[in-house]
Design a protein around this nucleic acid. Structure first.
Lengths: 207, 207, 207, 207
DNA sequence: ACGTTCGGGACGGCCCGTTAGT
DNA sequence: ACTAACGGGCCGTCCCGAACGT
C-alpha cells in the first residue's frame, strides 16, 4: 500500500504517491478552512499538518485560491450523485425532498470536505478567485423537486415552488450554522428534525 | 498626512471631538467588518477611511479585538430597546413577534453597526477576545414571547415555544445571510416576507 | 501636609506639589532605567507607575533624553559631597581611598538614583543626548588621592597614581556589575571586600 | 530591491550560499548588537546591511531572540578551544592564566562575534530568551587554573582560588568595558597590561 | 514528474515619543 | 497639568518564486 522508500526503488508509480499527496493536501486544507476560514489558514501550517513542504503544495496547486477552489468543487461534486441516488428510491416528491435533506444534514455533520467547502462559500466575498455561486444550485434542485410535488398535488395551496425552495435552503443553512456555533454541530440532526417538521407542515399539502 | 481637524466643522471642544472621533472609528470599523470580516479588515485601512491616524485608533481602542467587541456590544445594546418599544404597542403576542422581526429585518438591512456586529458574531471562533454568545439572547426573547402566545392559545398544538423560537431565529438568520450573499440584502424584506408567511403558518394556531 | 483639593483653594503652594511630582517622576524613572535600560523604559509606563499622566511628565521634562540626563546629573551631584565628607574624617590618604570606596559601594547597592544613573552611563552610546563622560571624574578623584598617598610614601614602588586609579575604578565597576548580574547585588559588599583586599595589597606600600 | 545573488560570485550551489548567508547575518547582527545593543538593533537594518531581505533572516533564525542566542553561543564556543590550546603550551599554572587572559583580551578587541556576545550578555535581563548565565563559566575555568597554581605553591598565602578567580574576571570585565567606553577599545591591551600587573602581584606567590 | 531549500517583498498589529489645544 | 491625536518604526509572518536535486 505504501510506496517503499527504501533502496531498489521500484517506484513504479510516483503517480500513485502524487495522487495520495494531493488528496492529503486537499483534506488537510479542507479541515483548516472549515475550522479557521480562508485567510486564517496559512499554507505553512497546511503543509506542516500534511507532513510535506510548502513547495509540494505549490506543485499541486498554483495558489492558495486554487486550493480553495479545489475544495469547493470537490464538495460541489457530491450533490448531483446524492440527488440521483435518492431519486432512485422511488419515493413521492415530498418524501424525496425530505430524504435528500436528511442525508445532506448527515454530510454537513460528518464530511470534512463539505464542511470546508461550506465555510469557504460563506467567505466567498473575500477570496479573490471566482468561486461558483453558492445556494443557487441547491435552490434550483429544490425548486425542481417542489414542482414535481406541485404537479402531484402535494404542495399546499399558496406556496410556490420557488418560495418553498428558498425557504427550505435558508432554513437549512441557518439551522446548520447556529448548531455549529452553539454546539459544534453535535445537535445538528435534532435541530434539523425540528426545523423539518415546521417547514414541511407549512409547505406540504394536508393529505 | 491628513489634517482632519482643519476644514469642516469647527469642533467646539476636545471632548466633543473625541466623542465624534470615537463614533467615526466605530462606524467605519463596523462597515469594514461587515464587508470583509475581522482578519481582512486592517486597522491601517480603517484609520485611512475614518480620516485619522492609527495612533488615534489606538488611543480610543486598546486593540483590534477591543474594537470588534465595541462594535458587537453597540449592536447588542439595540435590541432590548426595540423589544420594549414593540411591546408597548399593545399587540397580541403573535403580532408582537411579527412586528419585532419585521423591524429587526429593517435594522439588518440599514444599520451598519448591526451588520458589522452580525458578521463578527459569525466569525466568533477566530477572534481571540471573548465575544458574548450570539443567538441565545434572541432565542430567549423569542421563547418568552411564544410562551405568552401559548398562554393566549395562539400557538399551534404540537409546537413548543422553545422549538418555535429556535426555528424562527435559525430561519431569520439563514434568510438574511443568503440574501446578503446573493443580492447584497437588496431583496431582504421580500425574502423575509416569504419566510415569515411559511414559519408563522406553521407556528401560529389557526384562528 | 496634603494640599486640600476641596473648594476654597488655599492652594498656597502648587509649587510644593510640583516639586514633589518632579521628584516622584525622577525616582520612578531611575528605577526603571536601572532595571530595564533606556530604550526599554517607556514613558507611558513611567507615568503609570508614578501615578500621573504622560502630559505631566512632559511638563517637567522636555523629552525622554532630558529625563535621563536629569537622573544622571542627580547621581553625579552625590559624589563631591561624599568626597569632602570623607576627607573631613582626618584619615591617611590610603585609608581615605578605602573609606570612600566602601561608602560608594553602599550607595551602589541602596540608592536608586545611583543605580539608574550607572545603568544609563553604561548605555551612553545609544542615548542621543550628551551625557557627561563617565568614569573620568572618578579616575581623576582617585588619582588625586593616590598622589597624596604617594607623597606620603604610601604607594608601592612601581605603581603610578594614574595606573592605580584606573585599576581601582575598573575593578570596582566590574565587581559591581557582575554582582548585579549574578546576585542582584545581594553580595555586593562581600565581593567588594574581596576585591579591595587584593587591589590594596598591590597598590599600597608595605608598612 | 537588491538582487544580491546576481553579480559577484557565481554561487556554486544552494547549500554553500545558505551557509554563507547565515554566517553573513550572524556577523552583521553581532556587529550591530555590539554597537547598539539588542533592542536598538532592528532586524530591518540587519537585513539591509547584510544585503538580504528580512524574509531571509527569518528563514535562518526564527526570531530576533533566536538570533541573539546564536551569537552568544557562537561566542561561547570559542573559549574551550582557546583553553585547551593554551594548556597545551606546557606553561606553569600562573603563566597559563596570564597567557589565556592575554589571548582573551585580543579576542575582545578584534573578534566581532565576541564583542556582540559580550554586549548581549550585558543586556541579558532584557532579552526574553534564556541566555546561558555569563561569567560563571569563566570564573569556573579560572578557579580550576588557580587550584593548580595553589597545588604548585604558586598562590600567595591568604588568597583562595575562588576569590582570585572572581577578582580576575571582575577586573578583566571592568577594564574591557571602560576601555570600550572611553577609547573604543583602542587602548585595551595597554589597560590590560596595567590591570594584569597589579592583580598578578597580589595573587601570585613571590618566587 | 515530484519535491525541497532558500529567499523576496509586503503589510499587519502594536506601541512609542511627542505635540496641540485646552 | 491633562486629553486627544499624530506619525513613524518594529517584529513577525505570510504568500509566493527561482534554483536546485532526484
Amino acid at each position: 500500500m505504501k510506496t517503499p522508500t527504501s533502496a531498489g526503488r521500484p517506484v513504479r508509480n510516483q503517480q500513485e504517491r502524487a495522487i495520495h499527496t494531493r488528496a492529503q493536501i486537499l483534506r488537510t486544507a479542507a479541515e483548516m478552512f472549515a475550522d479557521s476560514g480562508f485567510r486564517q489558514t496559512s499554507l505553512t501550517t497546511v503543509a506542516e499538518r500534511a507532513e510535506i513542504t510548502k513547495g509540494a503544495v505549490y506543485f499541486h496547486f498554483a495558489s492558495k485560491e486554487a486550493l480553495a477552489i479545489a475544495v469547493v468543487e470537490e464538495q460541489y461534486s457530491r450533490w448531483p450523485n446524492l440527488v440521483t441516488e435518492v431519486r432512485g428510491l422511488g419515493l413521492s416528491p415530498i418524501e424525496t425532498v425530505t430524504e435528500l435533506l436528511d442525508r445532506t444534514a448527515i454530510a454537513f455533520r460528518d464530511d470534512v470536505i463539505v464542511r470546508g467547502g461550506v465555510r469557504l462559500q460563506t467567505e466567498r466575498s473575500l477570496i479573490e478567485a471566482q468561486l461558483p455561486q453558492p445556494y443557487t444550485a441547491w435552490i434550483g434542485r429544490m425548486t425542481a423537486l417542489l414542482e414535481d410535488a406541485d404537479a402531484a398535488g402535494q404542495l399546499r395551496p399558496g406556496v410556490t415552488p420557488e418560495a418553498g425552495a428558498r425557504v427550505l435552503v435558508e432554513g437549512f443553512f441557518g439551522m446548520q450554522h447556529i448548531s455549529d456555533t452553539l454546539n459544534g454541530r453535535a445537535d445538528l440532526m435534532e435541530r434539523w428534525g425540528e426545523m423539518r417538521e415546521i417547514l414541511m407542515y407549512a409547505i406540504a399539502a394536508r393529505p
